[in-house]
Simulated scan of single mutants.
Amino acid sequence: MEELTAYEEQIMKIFWKLNRAIVRDVLHELPAPKPPYTTLASTVKVLEKKGYLGHKSYGKTNEYYTLVAESDYRKKSFNHLVKNFFGGSVENVLSFLVKEKKVSEKEIQEMQKLIDDYSKKQ
């Protein structure tokens, strides 16, 4: 699975929301200022080339559909982040979040409960 640019990811989020769409549908979902239709169409073609989208033709109109589930992309992206920025260590990720105060006390307790529940299943 190839990496996506921030813009490509934005477009994929719309496809994951809509599941199937023509370029004009995606254009309507984008916030202002909207890109030119041709720019968006080119990006959709790139996403298809990267294997994220497929299409079905109806005359001159292409309806695009997702080939990669959002959950699969999320897993891959998170694993990439953990590997490349935190040395592959989930402990380093959690430590970073706690130190940067990005995690509340309640969230820490919820994570501890998840860990405890997981440990009981093992």
Rank of each mutant, 00 (worst) to 15 (best):
V23L: 06
S77W: 12
E8L: 02
T38D: 03
K45L: 12
M12V: 01
K102Y: 07
K83Y: 09
F15L: 11
E110N: 05
V103M: 10
E63R: 10
S71Y: 12
T5F: 06
T43M: 11
T5L: 12
G88A: 01
E2F: 14
D25P: 08
T38C: 00
A21T: 07
F15M: 13
G88M: 08
E63A: 03
E91F: 05
P36Y: 15
W16K: 07
D25M: 02
Y7L: 03
G51E: 09
E107M: 04
D117L: 12
F78R: 11
E3Q: 04
K13G: 07
Y118L: 09
T5I: 12
I115H: 05
E2C: 06
N84M: 14
D116L: 13
T66G: 04
G59H: 07
F96H: 02
M111H: 11
H80A: 13
E100R: 04
E107V: 09
F86Q: 00
E107K: 15
V68W: 14
K17N: 09
Y64N: 03
D72T: 04
K75G: 04
Q112V: 03
V90K: 00
Y118R: 02
L30G: 12
S57G: 09
K121F: 15
E8Q: 05
K60I: 10
L94C: 05
Y7W: 13
T61M: 11
E100C: 04
Q10S: 14
F85G: 08
E110R: 10
E9D: 01
A69L: 15
V98T: 02
P31T: 06
F15C: 14
V44N: 07
E91K: 14
I14L: 08
L30E: 12
D116E: 12
Q122F: 15
K76S: 11
L18C: 03
M1W: 04
K102H: 01
A6I: 03
A32H: 02
K60W: 07
E100V: 01
Y73K: 01
I115F: 14
S95H: 14
K56H: 05
D116W: 11
F15Y: 15
Y65R: 08
L53R: 15
K106E: 11
M111Q: 08
P31W: 04
E110K: 06
G87C: 14
S95F: 07
S104Q: 00
L47S: 08
V103H: 07
E91G: 08
W16A: 01
A32L: 14
H55T: 08
K56R: 03
E48G: 12
K49Y: 13
Y58K: 08
E2Q: 10
S89C: 00
I14F: 04
K113Y: 00
P36D: 08
L67Y: 05
I108W: 02
L81I: 03
L81Q: 04
M111W: 08
K106A: 01
I14G: 06
L53E: 10
W16C: 08
T43P: 00
